[in-house]
Amino acid sequence: MFLINCPYCGERDQHEFKAGGEAHIERPKQPTELSDDEWAEYLFMRKNIKGVQFERWNHAHGCRKWFNMVRDTSNDQIKLIYKMGEKPPSE
């Protein structure tokens, strides 16, 4: 890491950014119908992958916009950055 390419501002130092955890966790569409197990899955359970993982990041000390990142957690290498709302690449 060290440099992160914000899709809105360009390359900036890593410490301007805040990690926002696993990406593409969808908020339940009908929360009232969720079981306790499904709530636990949504709120707490994480993939926590060693290898390529999809994440959300926020340019907290910059444009303050959110974006997605594909990153290898075993060596911190950034593979790809794409905007919110865009479809995740298939590998």
Binding site: G21, E22, K50, R71, N75, D76
Partner: peptide, 12 residues
């Protein structure tokens, strides 16, 4: 604040 298995952390 990010997931990593690299046994290295950030300088800041």
């Amino acid at each position: 604040d990010y997931v990593s298995y690299s046994q290295k952390g950030s300088h800041q």
